[in-house]
C-alpha cells in the first residue's frame, strides 16, 4: 500500500523562529527552516547531503508547541509544525552548546570563540574523534562504499575502517575534508 510521502512536496506550515515568521514545507526540519531565513544554528554532525543524525546536539533549540508544551529539541530532526515557536539562542541552549564544546575539547573547536570556551574543566584527550559520524555516513549514504563503521558502543565507540580498505580510502579521500579532527585521514 502506498505510504504517505512526506517531505518537500508537503503543504506549507507557518511557524515563528526567533520572532521571525517563517513558512516551510511540511516535513522540513526546524534547522533547515531557520537557515532558510538566515538564522544560523550551530551544528557539528549535520550535513545537508546526508540524513540528519541528531547525535551532536549542538543544534538544540527551545520550542513551544501550539498547545503550549515547552521543551528542548534537536532542530536537525525536529519537523516544523503549525504554530510552533522556536528560540535558537537562549541561555539554556547556549549552556548546552558550551558544555558540548567543553566535552569534545580539544578535538572540535569550531564554535569555541563564539561560545567563549578556551579550555575544558574535564579530563581531555581521551579521544581524538568527536564521533559526529560524517565520514561514516558520507561513505555509506553518498559514496555508497560502506568502508567505515562504528565499532563498539558506549565510551568505547570508535570509527573504524573495514579491514583492507586503507588503499581505496586514501585514493578516494572525499570524507577527509568533512572531518573536523583529521581522524580518517590519519588512519588511512
Amino acid at each position: 500500500m502506498a505510504e504517505k510521502k512526506e517531505g518537500k512536496n508537503g503543504k506549507a506550515v507557518k511557524l515563528v523562529i526567533d520572532g521571525k515568521e517563517v513558512e516551510a514545507a511540511e516535513g522540513t526540519s526546524v534547522l533547515v527552516a531557520a537557515r532558510g531565513v538566515g538564522i544560523n544554528i550551530p551544528t557539528l554532525c549535520y550535513n545537508g547531503r546526508m540524513e540528519p543524525y541528531g547525535a551532536c546536539r549542538m543544534c538544540m533549540v527551545e520550542i513551544e508547541t501550539s498547545w503550549g508544551r515547552k521543551r528542548l529539541v534537536a532542530s536537525c530532526v525536529y519537523p516544523v509544525e503549525e504554530g510552533l515557536k522556536v528560540q535558537t539562542d537562549t541561555e539554556k541552549v547556549r549552556k548546552i552548546r558550551k558544555m558540548i564544546i567543553e566535552l569534545l575539547w580539544p578535538s572540535w573547536q569550531a564554535y569555541a570563540d563564539e561560545y567563549g570556551v578556551t579550555s575544558s574543566r574535564f579530563k581531555t584527550g581521551m579521544t581524538d574523534c568527536s564521533l559526529c559520524g560524517l565520514c561514516v555516513r558520507y561513505c555509506a549514504e553518498v559514496k555508497k562504499e560502506n568502508r567505515l563503521y562504528f565499532k563498539g558502543r558506549g565510551i568505547e565507540r570508535q570509527p573504524a575502517l573495514v579491514e583492507g580498505s586503507e588503499l581505496s580510502c586514501r585514493a578516494c579521500g572525499e570524507c577527509f575534508n568533512l572531518c573536523g579532527s583529521g581522524w580518517v585521514a590519519t588512519r588511512c
Binding site: A55, R57, G133, R153, I155
Partner: peptide, 13 residues
C-alpha cells in the same frame, strides 16, 4: 558508560 550506544555526545561524553 558501557551500555550507552555511544551515539550522542551528552550521554557518551
Amino acid at each position: 558508560a558501557h551500555e550507552s550506544c555511544g551515539k550522542c555526545v551528552p550521554c557518551r561524553e
